[in-house]
Amino acid sequence: MRLTCPLCGPRDRREFYYSGAAVALDRPGAEAPPEAWDDHLHNRDNPAGVTQDLWYHEQGCCSWLKVTRNTVTHEILAVETVGGDSTAGGVA
């Protein structure tokens, strides 16, 4: 399996650390009821099809990545950096 890191390019799976569903990015608001927090912390879908999860490029650029993939076909549909590609820029 390979992920195409938006910064580093296509990289082997062993450079990445899997960190669960991308639901972690959608925190309930401060006023949210306890049920919303219960849902956020404990309840996860287990879809047969397209899902989104978080991966950390620990043996690479140290970016958090949001990966959209298909659990049935194993197709990687999109890889985005959670924090944007760069805040400082850079040239070749």
Binding site: C61, A88, G89, G90, V91, A92
Partner: peptide, 15 residues
């Protein structure tokens, strides 16, 4: 990053 590059006399590298 551009300012850092100038100060170092180098260009800040792309990935």
């Amino acid at each position: 990053s551009a300012a850092v590059g100038t100060a170092l006399g180098l260009t800040f590298p792309a990935p």
